[in-house]
Amino acid sequence: MSVLSLKNVVKRYHNHIAVNDVSFDVHENRIFGLLGPNGAGKTSLIRMITTITQIDDGEIYIAGEKLNPSHTAWIGYMPEERGLYKKMKVGEQLLFLAQIKGLTKEEAYRRIKVWFEKFEITSWWGKRVEELSKGMQQKIQFISTVVHQPKILILDEPFSGLDPINANLIKDEIYRLSQEGTSIIFSTHRMEQVEEVCQDIVLMNGGKIILNGEVNAIKESYKNHEYHVTYRGDLPALNNTGLNLGVHRPGEIHIKSDADTPANQILQTLINQGVAITGFSEIRPSLNEIFISKVEEQTHA
């Protein structure tokens, strides 16, 4: 069952169409990536899902129900442009943000305490936000996003500005939350982050969806049948083997092939030629490369 469903959604601003007939489904318990370059329409889309702006055309469904303001209690949203009240104390601020999501004060207090213990930051309760470092503020912001146990968690560029340690911490939390039943929508233009974390993706450009599906399936379908071979010593001549040679650097070489030639055949040919093979794998294109080729396809269409 899809926890979030978009059908032909359109968003127009006075001089351009930010979201142009977008449809996709997010399934329960999955980590879903909303990708695209800056200006693709991701944030406009997210703002409609979070009821910040109105839909101009089309429909959005949350767990089968048409989107309405009461659904904000089910959604946790961490925007790309994020911040907190600087002069307010951390504890008070989290209580406030939890309460506007519908939690009672007592319940909010309990849950915040649990998160503080988990992140080992209990001493921060009475500190003002401006006294904390940026990484610390991000942690607080993260807690404010998840404290009400939302069904859907929407994170817009969650790792921007984070050092590797804190980024890892958040990533672990994302995995854990996903396992505990939260559906996560992860929006970014950093494709390499997506490959690590997401299971399903949608690729947007110019307000339209240009790719939609499971990450592995997409990468499979974009295979070039190219192989990456590493070897020891010198490379014997391969000109007459019928092998299509690609990039060649000391110790490694790419072999281009086609769908009909099985990998074993290529491997066999190399071994026959006396290549001292240390590694052999199929090159799967990165999402970055897929994206670029897709966009170029679009521009030339």
């Binding site: 904000t72 949203y77 925007p79 994020r82």
Partner: peptide, 8 residues
């Protein structure tokens, strides 16, 4: 920048 969180 807290306003976006608030109006969500």
């Amino acid at each position: 920048r807290i306003v976006e969180v608030l109006i969500s």
